[in-house]
């Protein structure tokens, strides 16, 4: 049991390091670049300039579809290429690698804080 626990801790530490690295070395530079270009990925305006805040529903693919992690890389590429989010394409390979490495057979673990539930 001790060995398993140690292994889990090792896995956790390694995962955390990879996630930190991805955030610092990939996400942050792209975020700064986007900011320089004044590109907006989220609509944050809070003004009277538009008559409505509804957006038309955009049908991204079929209503019912199949998806598995092997499709992740290609589907992310297609999605971001179609949305002309070309700069995001730089992240695809790393995200695919992270997804592969972070997969755990068991989903047991800490409960996720309810305060970050918007991330799900």
């Amino acid at each position: 049991m001790t060995g398993e626990t140690d292994m889990n801790l090792t896995d956790q530490t390694r995962d955390d390091a990879r996630l930190e690295e991805f955030f610092n070395k990939q996400l942050v530079p792209i975020a700064e670049k986007l900011r320089e270009e004044e590109a907006q990925l989220l609509a944050l305006e809070f003004s009277d300039s538009e008559s409505s805040w509804y957006v038309p529903y955009v049908d991204v693919g079929p209503e019912v579809f199949s998806f598995d992690v092997d499709q992740l890389e290609q589907e992310l590429r297609d999605l971001w290429r179609d949305q002309q989010d070309a700069v995001l394409l730089e992240l695809v390979k790393s995200l695919e690698n992270l997804a592969r490495d972070l997969y755990r057979d068991s989903e047991d673990g800490d409960d996720v804080s309810p305060f970050v539930y918007v991330m799900f």
Binding site: V28, L42, L88
Partner: peptide, 9 residues
């Protein structure tokens, strides 16, 4: 990802 890119660092 887009949410994080909006607020990062």
């Amino acid at each position: 990802i887009k949410s994080l890119l909006t607020v990062a660092p």
